[in-house]
Amino acid sequence: MADKKRYGFVIDISRCIDCRACQVACSLENSVPLNHTRIWIHDQGVQGTFPKLSRTFVPYNCMHCEHPPCIEVCVSGATYKDPNNGLVLVDQEACIGCGFCVEACPYDARYLDEKLGVVDKCNGCIQRVEIGQKPACVATCLGGSRLFGDLNDPASDVSIALKNAKSLFRLDIEGKDIDTDPNIYFINAPQSLTSLVTSDAFKQQGQAVPREPKYTISEEGWKKVLVPAIAAGIGASFLVQATYFTKQLIEGEKEFDE
């Protein structure tokens, strides 16, 4: 499957000027409700002491992970990874808006559209990409920070940018049962990206990205207790029937065979 596409973003940290044109463009292109956004610009604020200061902006959106925790928890199959291009998409007609995926996403890249009762997120502007346009955020990025394209294609903008990158970071989460393997590559950051996005201040505000994925207690509970219990129940009823049936076979059906 060498010709399979793997769409992803490359974000040049050194070129983001926090102008927020991407956010506005995205909001309009995708009719994002006014109380939500699909793109965030992580800003730790001004660092250092006067006059030795620095400030770095880290824009991000859905990372279109290779192993997305959101898909793991989706009960209706609404969230899926497009087999043709690797984008993590939401089929809103199948979505019931339960929000398990919102809690699971370690990047907080999903939101619940209260009006439609469904979950929404960055879709890589697939509606534009399909007809040869760039995603809205990429097309209008003033600083030239955002790039989008096929990471499997060595001639794509993103591959070229990756090749020439001075530094490379991903906000990967690796744990005992998780490895998101995100498809946003941050390049040319002045320092370790993790220190930029997971500072104590952010953690206090609950804004650190990435965070530990949350799986609700109930959901864990189902898996650990209820599912085996139900399986055992069904199994037992089968067992009882089988015994009974066998017993009947052995004893014969006297009453009815007169």
């Binding site: 009960v75 808006g97 339960c98 919102v102 009006k115 469904v118 189902w222 139900i230």
Partner: peptide
């Protein structure tokens, strides 16, 4: 199914209720 009428927490609780009832 009527996803706009209830907050997500209700929909989260509804899922196991649905399954347990069915099972």
């Amino acid at each position: 199914a009527l996803k706009t009428l209830f907050p997500p927490i209700v929909k989260q609780i509804a899922q196991p209720l649905h399954w347990v009832s069915v099972f």
